[in-house]
Design a binder for these strands. Sequence first.
DNA 1: GTCTATAACTGGATAGAC
DNA 2: GTCTATCCAGTTATAGAC
Lengths: 212, 212
Amino acid sequence: MTSSSTRESILDATERLAASGGTDALSLRSITREAGVNVAAIHYHFGGRDGLMRAMLDRHVAPLNARRLALLDGLDEAAGPAAVLEAFLRPDLELIDRLRRDGRASLTRFLGEAYARPTPEVAALMAAQFHPVAEAFLARLAGCLPEVPPAELRLRLGLVVAVVQGLFAEAPDLDGPALLGADTLDEQVRRLVSFAAGGVGAPAATPHARRP
Amino acid sequence: MTSSSTRESILDATERLAASGGTDALSLRSITREAGVNVAAIHYHFGGRDGLMRAMLDRHVAPLNARRLALLDGLDEAAGPAAVLEAFLRPDLELIDRLRRDGRASLTRFLGEAYARPTPEVAALMAAQFHPVAEAFLARLAGCLPEVPPAELRLRLGLVVAVVQGLFAEAPDLDGPALLGADTLDEQVRRLVSFAAGGVGAPAATPHARRP
DNA sequence: GTCTATAACTGGATAGAC
DNA sequence: GTCTATCCAGTTATAGAC
């Protein structure tokens, strides 16, 4: 078996396990059993467990951010904040939707955990990949929303990211009457974007009187 | 040493470890070392590791929800959506702020993980505790925001919860120029509430024309 | 109620043959 | 590049003395 096909089969097996059993099922032993390869192969190809996890993240996060930028790039000059936020959010919902249709919903939790409890290295990788994306969207939003101070905009985009993180974490459980349950993808996008646009474009907070 | 004081010292030690080392530092061995008690004591008092984790959650989540309801109860009849959302969100920010001032910021990650990767039992416990709170707030919000359909309101409150979950997960790292970094607590509350109120009260999403 | 001692496992990593 | 065999640190849990 050539080098690259073993590498791929390890990644595929890891993904299958993450999708069905959640992150706890991702021991080197279970992965190698699933992939039909050997424990040492993982160390050879990825340098260890951490390297494998980083490779898994790249596999999903890089396309996600690429799609964000592509959608942003395709917008009209005159696009409003809602359209910009749709470019930011739609790729996440597409990913969640695709994985859930495949019966691989638990894979979203793997991604959610990369946010919620990153290894220092994973955190650095995520930040490095996400930073230019965030800056591009912030610049565009600042153009649409001149009345919102840039610092406030930055904070609010951070809150939007927090929403997305929450969606990824909960996505496997949303089968019932929950968040994005029974809707079509476009419907989900509309609803999420209307919430996000309302939040990002809200009048800047001013101190208000407290009750006596 | 009496039964209850051992129980307490175990809980305290668990909390100290979660606060300094994150969730991975919470093995029975490290806990018993820190508490100066024995491994078997944990099984005696909590029935095992899971029971201990459940007890830890109760210790923080129960007061959180109680405070939410208390603040909601103290509102004027005429209170608007922003005030209601402040009652919902302020307890979270208070908790994060308090833990960060104590140098126990990592404890927030423990709570964030309870959302992001709950044991089935933990998920059930969280849902049971949170459900009545959510219903109370939804009823109140429905009164303030008759123009937003109840189903939409429910979804949006879910998104607010996702924001909170994201805040808990990231809180330990927010020392730099990040989300709620340099502000006072009241300032944080104002900013978060203005975002949430903008999102929850946004005009209901309507289909909009896509670009050609 | 508390402790010692130990059982029974699983985890990641690696040396060295092929 | 790939495998076998092994190492060792780590985990939860429990039986049984006190």
